[in-house]
Design a protein around this nucleic acid. Structure first.
Lengths: 204, 204
DNA sequence: GTCTATATGGCGATAGAC
DNA sequence: GTCTATCGCCATATAGAC
């Protein structure tokens, strides 16, 4: 039945998503995906013909979601400050719940850069859609900063501390998980403050 | 002979370093390491008993080097500005030559966080060594900013754009490698300017 | 120390019963 | 659609000749 199919397929997708993100394509095991989905290993091959096809299916969905989320944030809100606050807060929340996500995406794209071409179109990510508005806004408000630098600086400060969590947690917070989490929550405000402060220096 | 041993061992280490960093522990193949070292596969097991031992050996050395380099940068130069310039410029150069390095370290530490404990001591990385001086400097120059935030912001802006290279190169520069590289070179100055500009807002 | 040949185990994938 | 059993390959690791 289609109802039943959908259920099993969803369970597989969810399990596969978890395992692929945690272990990466090379490190993931079909057995582990089957176990987490509570089904048999051969059922994986019944629904998705191969590990590679399963991976591509999952990977596409992730890239699409991330791309759409990004576009939404960049469009909502009028002022630069609102965009900034929205982006920082939303992404810290999402990534704290999915701490493996940044490394996973970096890795798979680094090891197979062509993959980004395929999903790039489907996800209908159109750089100009969010890039031009920001560029215009910066210009309109007389901030004489390269918009590419500006955007990448902000994204860096949000994503890096999550990708580098084990290092930061150990070196800066001596292994204290709570201290790390509290720090990341405070960053929702401290990043905004830092960026706004920096922008002042670019006012013409 | 010891001379000969050293030669072979070095060739293995170099090849292993390359392959592990590019493919990760799970994705690396002993055959490929042997091929790149120009030796036989079983020689790998003669010098290092297992893949895991070989990996740990390589990983330790990488962590040590990175840690030492980091400490050196943080100690050299007097002013905050000099530290900043030194760090940004040196790390962009090093990482542009080793673009796989950040993801590799993030990944292996994320998938095996305990690993950092072991090497942490050997590498004699003592956070207070570079952390306290920076904290004192910021306080002395009346910058009322959390030194942890400050340091992580700077590191983020340097490392993230290299870890996320395939995405940035594609989305921002439409796949143009030269444009990406030129952008990263310009960031040596633009990051410094951005950070110094931000700091102004924290002056008491 | 370095090689060839081979053992051993694990993993992706398939066959076939129900 | 779901299971058990099994195939076939590939990767790590070892044995043994030179």
């Amino acid at each position: 039945m289609t109802e039943k199919e959908k259920l099993t397929e969803d369970k597989i997708a969810e399990a596969a998503r978890e395992v692929f993100i945690e272990k990466g394509m090379a490190g993931a095991r079909m057995q582990e995906i089957a176990d987490r989905a509570g089904i048999n290993k051969s059922l994986l091959h019944y629904y998705f013909r191969s590990k590679e096809k399963l991976f591509n299916f999952i990977f596409s969905k992730i890239i699409d979601r991330v791309g759409i989320m990004f576009q939404n944030i960049m469009q909502e809100g009028v002022s630069i400050e609102d965009k900034l606050k929205g982006f920082v807060s939303t992404y810290i929340d999402v990534l704290m719940k999915n701490p493996f996500l940044p490394n996973f995406i970096f890795n798979e794209l680094t090891r197979n850069p062509e993959a980004i071409f395929d999903h790039y179109k489907n996800a209908n990510i159109e750089p100009s859609k969010f890039f031009k508005p920001l560029e215009n806004q910066l210009a309109a408000e007389k901030y004489n900063i390269n918009p590419q630098d500006f955007m990448i600086n902000v994204i860096s400060m949000v994503i890096f501390p999550i990708a580098a969590k084990p290092i930061i947690k150990q070196i800066v917070f001596e292994g204290d998980e709570k201290a790390y989490k509290a720090f990341m929550q405070l960053r929702k405000e401290s990043i905004v403050k830092f960026v706004l402060s920096a922008l002042e220096g670019y006012k013409e």
